[in-house]
C-alpha cells in the first residue's frame, strides 16, 4: 500500500465515521422516546411548510421516515455496505433540510431546528445561517462518500466480485478506465473480404454495422 493509498484509506474512514456518527446520533435523539419523536414532529410543523390540517399525514410520516432513514443509512455507512447508495439517500435528505432552513431564514421565522432533539451544538436555536453551514458540511461529507465509496476497509470492498464494478469498487468512478473501443473485426468476418460501403441489397449484415438487438 502506497502512502497515497494510506491517506485515502484514513480520510475515507474518517468521513464515514463522522457522517455515520452524526446521523446515528440525530436518529437516536429523535427515536429514543415517543416524546422525542413528537418534538421532532412539532419542529416540522413549526417550519410551516406543511399545513397541519391538510398535510398532517406527511408530517407524521416525515417524523418517522427522517430518523429511520438517518439510522439505516448511518449503519450502512458505518460498516461500509452500499456506501454510495446510503450516501446518496442522505445527500438528498440533507438537501431537503437545507432548502427548509433557507426557507425559514428567508421568511424571518423564529423556530427551533429539532435536528438533534434537545441537543443544539454547535448551532443554538433559533434557526440561522449556522444551521446552513452545518448541513453544508454534512452534504460535503455525503458527496465525498458518493464519489469515493466506502474505501478499502468496507464491506463493499470485501464483497466486490471484481475490480471495476462502479457500484462495489471503492475506487472513484472518475478513475475507472473506459474500455477501449473494439478495433478488431469480428472473427466471423473474412479479413480478405472487401468491406461494403453500404448495406448489400440482400440484407446481409456488413462488417461495419453493429448487430441488431434481439428482443425475444
Amino acid at each position: 500500500m502506497t502512502t497515497g493509498q494510506r491517506i485515502d484509506l484514513i480520510i475515507t474512514l474518517f468521513v464515514r465515521l463522522f457522517i455515520a456518527g452524526v446521523f446515528g446520533f440525530a436518529a437516536f435523539m429523535k427515536l429514543k422516546s415517543n416524546d422525542a419523536t413528537q418534538a421532532f414532529a412539532e419542529s416540522i410543523r413549526s417550519f410551516k411548510i406543511l399545513s397541519p390540517i391538510d398535510h398532517e399525514h406527511l408530517v407524521v410520516v416525515s417524523s418517522f421516515a427522517v430518523p429511520w432513514a438517518e439510522a439505516i443509512c448511518a449503519a450502512l455507512i458505518l460498516i461500509g455496505l452500499w456506501t454510495r447508495a446510503a450516501a446518496f439517500v442522505m445527500l438528498g435528505a440533507v438537501g431537503v433540510f437545507i432548502a427548509a432552513i433557507a426557507s425559514v431564514i428567508a421568511r424571518d421565522m423564529n423556530v427551533s431546528c429539532g435536528c438533534f432533539g434537545e441537543f443544539n451544538f454547535p448551532c443554538d436555536n433559533p434557526i440561522g445561517t449556522c444551521h446552513l453551514w452545518r448541513n453544508g458540511v454534512l452534504a460535503a461529507g455525503c458527496l465525498f462518500l458518493l464519489i469515493r465509496g466506502g474505501g478499502r476497509l468496507s464491506f463493499d470492498r470485501l464483497l466486490a466480485p471484481s475490480k471495476g464494478d462502479p457500484d462495489l469498487d471503492p475506487e472513484p468512478a472518475s478513475t475507472l478506465r473506459a474500455k477501449p473501443a473494439p478495433t478488431a473485426r469480428p472473427a466471423s468476418v473474412d479479413p480478405d473480404r472487401p468491406i461494403a460501403l453500404s448495406s448489400p441489397p440482400t440484407g446481409e449484415m456488413s462488417a461495419d454495422q453493429p448487430p441488431k438487438p434481439r428482443w425475444d
Partner: peptide, 19 residues
C-alpha cells in the same frame, strides 16, 4: 433503502398514540 425506511416509518408510526 427507501422501501426499508418507509416500512420502518409506517410500522413505527402505527404504535404512536400521541399522533
Amino acid at each position: 433503502i427507501l422501501v426499508v425506511v418507509l416500512v420502518a416509518a409506517v410500522a413505527h408510526s402505527m404504535q404512536w398514540p400521541i399522533t
